[in-house]
Design a protein around this nucleic acid. Structure first.
Lengths: 146, 146
DNA sequence: TTTTCTATTGAGACTAGATATCAAAACATG
DNA sequence: CATGTTTTGATATCTAGTCTCAATAGAAAA
């Protein structure tokens, strides 16, 4: 979970980038900071009836662009947000419960960067997602459920 | 591009899985087989005014589930489909033009499978996407565009 | 502190991509 | 041909989000 210092970190980042730190933005940041694992944009919207829908989406986008949040895609295609560590990383996502963990795998990064020579163009970036059934979800599964 | 034999392959796959090979499904398969690189579901829908919208989506989903198509996510989140090789692979996607290439990287697979020991649960699968600016798009780019 | 100017906001319309409903049509089989 | 199951298409609905635009808030200047 995000700490108080992370909340002020959001203010700082926004300020440094020349964005105003406003009431609505602060509300979104505060709610976001209470979330563990992944959450949908709508859950933020529902939690802040006094903040406009557009503003919620705008702020989530802003926070994603500044690297505070990151947006991931579940296997079924539905988008989720999560608090983002400071470094480049990827995600391990539990399909049943949506819990996510970050992982870093320098070997993987090197491997993907090395593809530069095999690829006919310029590499812009990459995305890696690993889908699992987490330990908490395993016991509850009917045999054969997968 | 898909060949004639691929078209009959679709029929076979559907039949083997117990689905009927119907007119609408055949139309979708035929149009899909003419597409190079990625395409949107809507482009299939627009190309087949005689086939219902729902049927188009249903069929694309079916073809994805049977492994004939695969659905990828562009960096901006918009979904695309592409003809899929027979084996497990990932995608190199040109962000400017949407052209995609499949790639296989056994080392990568092994690496991701090896994570099983580091992960507290059961690995279900993974997704890797590499975003590039392809050689064709590079020259057209204004310097600094990136 | 009042003015000024720009950034931000919220209401609401709109879009893309897709799923749900359900009666009608198409099929396979007896 | 009768029967029961699949599939279909029209339409409504949904999710996730963007766009527009007038009203507002905030920062900086006067």
């Amino acid at each position: 979970m995000m700490t108080l210092t992370d909340e002020t970190r959001i203010d700082n980042v926004l300020e440094e980038l020349g964005y105003r730190v406003t009431g609505p933005r602060r509300k979104v940041a505060r709610l976001v900071s209470t979330k563990e694992g992944t959450f949908s944009a709508e859950s933020i919207n529902d939690g802040l009836p006094t903040v406009g829908r557009a503003t919620v989406y705008r702020t989530l986008k802003l926070l994603s662009e500044t690297g505070i949040l990151c947006k991931i895609t579940l296997p079924d295609g539905s988008p989720r947000y999560s608090l983002d560590g400071a470094w480049h990383h990827h995600h391990v996502i539990c399909s049943p419960c949506g819990k996510i963990e970050e992982f870093r795998k320098p070997v993987l990064e090197r491997l993907l960067r090395e593809m530069a020579s095999e690829v006919d163009g310029k590499i812009l970036g990459h995305r890696v997602e690993v889908y699992i059934t987490c330990a908490d979800c395993l016991p509850g599964m009917a045999p054969g459920d997968n």
